[in-house]
Computed example of a mutant assay.
Amino acid sequence: MTATPHLPLGTHLLADLSGIHAESLRDCDALEGLLRNAAIIAGAQVLHGHFHSFGPGHGVTGVLLLAESHISIHTWPECGFAAVDIFMCGAARPQLALDTIQDALQAPHCQLQSVRRAPPGHP
């Protein structure tokens, strides 16, 4: 039996979310829970996560390693801004993860870039 090769085909979303209430961007534990929930809703499997708060009143940086790739967030509460990076391969649905994050943060503005990730010549 020949193994089917795993192709690195996926979608990479880069989202700049703005207009967010500052308190929503300072809580490290809440942001980790949000990203974990977003990954599950998108059909991804969380392997590991690491989140760091820069102290009271400051932002958070965090990343979830997924079987399908990753989700990361970097926040600037003083600007009401979050940079979100979602890369998922296979059957996972990154747009569902982004919708979940944007809704939970009540972000009225989203500037989105979507990049298709595949080897040259892949359909």
Rank of each mutant, 00 (worst) to 15 (best):
A82K: 07
C89T: 15
I71V: 05
F51R: 02
H58C: 07
L64W: 05
I86L: 03
I101C: 10
V84G: 13
A67K: 00
H50P: 13
V84Y: 09
Q106R: 09
Q113I: 02
L112R: 01
G80P: 12
H50N: 11
M88L: 03
A67T: 01
A44D: 06
Q113K: 10
H48N: 15
T61F: 05
F51N: 01
Q113Y: 04
A38F: 02
H109M: 01
D85K: 08
H50W: 05
H74S: 00
A44E: 04
P56W: 02
A104G: 12
A67I: 03
A38L: 03
S69W: 01
A44H: 09
L66G: 14
I71H: 00
F87W: 10
S53L: 01
H109P: 06
T61V: 06
V46I: 09
R36H: 02
G90C: 12
I101P: 03
Q95T: 11
M88V: 03
P56V: 08
P108R: 00
H48V: 11
Q102W: 09
A91P: 13
A42S: 03
D99V: 07
P77R: 07
L105V: 13
F54C: 02
I71P: 04
Q113D: 06
S53V: 04
H58V: 07
G80A: 08
D103F: 14
R93Q: 11
C79A: 14
A42G: 06
A104Q: 05
H50Y: 04
D103M: 13
S69F: 03
T61S: 14
L112F: 05
A39M: 10
A91S: 15
D103W: 06
A82R: 08
A83M: 01
G62S: 05
L98H: 03
F81T: 01
Q113P: 00
H109L: 09
A82F: 10
G55Y: 00
R93A: 15
L105T: 05
H70V: 12
Q95D: 10
L96M: 14
H52E: 14
S69H: 11
L66T: 09
L47R: 10
V46G: 07
L98K: 08
G43H: 08
R93G: 02
H50D: 04
I86N: 09
A83S: 03
D85T: 05
F87C: 12
V115K: 12
Q95N: 08
F87G: 06
H52P: 13
I86K: 04
T61I: 09
Q102C: 12
S72R: 06
A92K: 13
H58K: 06
I86M: 06
N37V: 09
A107H: 12
S114T: 10
L65C: 08
I41R: 07
P56M: 03
C110P: 00
I101R: 04
L112Q: 05
H74R: 02
V84L: 07
E68Y: 03
G43F: 04
A107V: 12
A38R: 07
I73F: 14
A39T: 06
H109G: 07
W76D: 06
C89I: 09
A67H: 00
C79D: 11
V46Q: 04
L98I: 08
C110I: 03
F81D: 02
Q106Y: 05
T100D: 04
V115I: 14
Q95Y: 03
A44V: 11
E78V: 08
I40D: 07
Q106A: 07
N37T: 11
R36L: 05
I101G: 01
Q113R: 05
A104H: 14
F87H: 03
T100S: 09
A92N: 13
A97H: 12
